[in-house]
Amino acid sequence: MRLIFAGTPEFAAQALAAIVAAGHEVALVLTQPDRPAGRGMSLQHSAVKQVALAHGLALFQPPSLKDGAAQARLAAVDADAMVVAAYGLILPQAVLDLPRFGCLNIHASLLPRWRGAAPIQRALLAGDDESGVCIMQMEAGLDTGPVLLREALAIATDETAATLHDKLAALGARLIADALDRLPMPAAAQPAKGVTYAHKIDKAEAIIDWSHPAAKLDRHIRAFNPFPGAQARFAGQPVKLWRAVAVTGSGEPGTILTVDRQQIVVACGDGALAVSELQKAGGKRLPVQQFLAGHPLQVGQRFETASEAV
């Protein structure tokens, strides 16, 4: 297959590496323009760009695909198919129509559940038992196209967005290589029932509301690990919570019930949350024992509620 590949983060980079390893000709790689990152705010290559450079692939980083010059560059490739994975730019109909077999998207959910930008986090927040990957024929609608391949996997009880991302990235890389080997292949229309939307994550969503049940806050912390990090406030200062489990316990929401070397147990609206890894602003992620050495917390003290934190 002569291909165009469009993607930006690590999820997409694994797929690109798998496609190259499968022996396909990747004639052009599209990725988002380099952007400043890190403390020095220097321009950083995307994960996909790093893979493309390592394999000597032609790169194209347009800010948009809506202008005629960008579309002419893609048309000149005369691609059999275009593979898209977490690219971050909208593909106009003119681009969708260019390749002989169209554009294939690697989507990290079991469509039609969790169409949209943040399917991994939304699945965890909702307490889904399973997730998966769909290889979808792209069309103008948001993740509405027919599905060529799908495969499910179970979500572990301690799954975080980071661990689920890695599992789905590996699964997506395997499925897209399989799909390309089998083109042309039939695609099944998505069912009309069961549609949900995985809206983009807003950092404000990461603020912990201690009035919620402990089981919900457990999912909250795992869904926002590693980005943007579930955030509580203590004594007016932000504290990120990275690891916790729901346990039995009761008290005024936000109140510290017990403290030991392994965990800090905090009362919730229903049950309690045993926190085992924390991070103060400007500090490092620390297990409880190390965190308490610099930031002693005591039974009876309270994390601020959502209303107090505003």
Rank of each mutant, 00 (worst) to 15 (best):
4 I>N: 07
4 I>V: 15
5 F>S: 14
6 A>E: 01
12 A>C: 07
16 L>D: 07
19 I>E: 06
23 G>A: 08
26 V>F: 12
26 V>W: 11
32 Q>I: 04
35 R>V: 09
38 G>R: 01
38 G>H: 02
41 M>F: 06
41 M>S: 10
48 V>N: 12
52 A>I: 00
54 A>V: 13
56 G>M: 03
57 L>Q: 01
65 L>A: 13
65 L>M: 13
66 K>A: 09
67 D>L: 06
67 D>S: 08
68 G>N: 04
73 R>G: 07
77 V>D: 04
80 D>V: 00
84 V>L: 14
85 A>T: 05
98 L>H: 01
100 R>K: 15
101 F>V: 03
106 I>F: 02
117 A>S: 03
121 Q>V: 15
121 Q>G: 06
124 L>S: 13
126 A>M: 07
133 V>D: 11
134 C>P: 02
135 I>V: 15
135 I>N: 06
145 G>Y: 02
146 P>K: 02
148 L>N: 06
149 L>D: 14
151 E>I: 05
154 A>Y: 06
157 T>H: 09
158 D>K: 05
163 T>G: 13
167 K>M: 11
169 A>T: 08
170 A>Q: 14
176 I>M: 13
177 A>K: 00
183 L>T: 09
185 M>I: 11
186 P>A: 06
186 P>H: 12
193 K>Y: 00
194 G>Y: 00
198 A>G: 10
199 H>A: 15
201 I>G: 03
201 I>Y: 02
202 D>F: 04
204 A>E: 15
215 A>T: 13
219 R>Q: 09
223 A>H: 08
224 F>N: 10
227 F>G: 03
228 P>C: 02
228 P>A: 01
232 A>R: 01
234 F>E: 03
247 V>K: 02
249 G>L: 01
255 T>M: 07
256 I>M: 05
256 I>C: 03
265 V>R: 02
270 D>E: 15
271 G>Y: 08
278 L>E: 10
284 K>F: 05
289 Q>K: 15
293 A>H: 11
295 H>N: 15
295 H>A: 11
300 G>Y: 10
308 E>N: 09
